[in-house]
Structure formats: C-alpha cells, structure tokens
C-alpha cells in the first residue's frame, strides 16, 4: 500500500517534469521559427502547431502535480477562520469534489478521444496530425488528477504532498 502511494506520487512528479520539458520544447520550437522565418526566409509548417499541442500537454500533464503541491489557487477567506475539525471536513469534501470532476473529465475525455479516432479527424494544416493524439492528453491528465485526489483523500487534511519544493 505504502509502495503504491509512493509510486503514485513519483508518477505525478515525473509527469510534472514531462510537462516542463514540453514548455522547454515550445520555447525552442518558437525560437527556431523566429530565426528560420525572419533571418532565413523559411517559416516552418510545424512550430506553431506543435507548440500549441505541447502547451496543452503541459497543462494536462502538470495539473496533477499542481494539485499535489497545493499550487492550485484557493480562496482562503473562510478556511483560515474555522477550527481544525471543520477544516478537515472541508478538505474531504473538496478532494471528493475534485475527484468527481476528474473522473468525469477522464471518462468523457476517453470517449471524446475514441470518437476523434473513429472519425479519423486530422488537423487542418500541412501537418495533418491525427487529432486524437493531442487530445489524449485530456484523459491521461485526468487519470493523474484522479490519482492525485485519491492521495489527498488518504492524506486527510495534512499537506503531505505539498510544498516539498
């Protein structure tokens, strides 16, 4: 059980690194586009499009890590003013709601990806990317979110995953 918990946390963290690499890749691709277009007169057919996919990927892969490190913004008006017991209950409700949202996002995300795959939708560009590929980030990110919220529920109101960086 403990090992599964640790593995899950590690998985979320490595997804976070992957998200970071996607942001780096976007930076490099966009920079390359600028140089290639403005100084060599050769705009690329791929930089803009792949950058957009990469940033979508970085959001869905990174959002579970943001949950685990309490980087998602909360409004602290009331939570800071109630006693520990109430705060604990609030935390359970919130993580439960987060889990519910993630489950819906994941399930319907999978259905959406499957439909895109079945229809054979491709991007309206020169790359003709099968659109189910970038859309796959949604259910993958959704599964990571589900794991993150389950870990939070196990933690109770202790910020175990949080603030370690």
């Amino acid at each position: 059980m403990n090992r599964l918990y640790k593995f899950s946390d590690l998985l979320i963290k490595y997804a976070g690194y992957l998200a970071g690499i996607l942001i780096f890749a976007t930076t490099l691709m966009t920079f390359y586009e600028v140089i290639s277009r403005s100084f060599f007169g050769m705009p690329t057919a791929w930089a803009t499009e792949l950058s957009t996919y990469a940033i979508i990927g970085s959001c869905f892969l990174g959002t579970a890590y943001a949950v685990r490190t309490y980087a998602h913004i909360t409004v602290d008006l009331l939570v800071n003013r109630v006693n520990d017991a109430a705060r604990r209950i609030f935390a359970y409700i919130c993580n439960g709601l987060g889990l519910l949202f993630s489950a819906i996002l994941t399930w319907y995300g999978f259905k959406h990806v499957f439909m895109t795959f079945e229809l054979g939708v491709i991007s309206t560009s020169l790359l003709r990317i099968p659109m189910y590929l970038p859309e796959l980030f949604i259910p993958i990110g959704g599964v990571l979110l589900i794991i993150a919220f389950i870990l939070q529920l196990i933690d109770g109101n202790v910020h175990k995953g949080g603030d370690h960086l």
Binding site: G41, A45, A47, L126
Partner: peptide
Amino acid sequence: GLKIRSVGTLPSELIQAYGASPVFMG
C-alpha cells in the same frame, strides 16, 4: 519568396505551389 499567413491544408498547399511560404499564426 513571400510569407503569407494561411489557414487550412489546401490553401497552404496552394501558397506553396505558387512559390510562397505559408505562415501559421494566431
């Protein structure tokens, strides 16, 4: 040699066929 903002697959192919480069931007 022109750089022309383009949307869509075939219009971009046409821009290429005419010897210009399609540029993709928001």
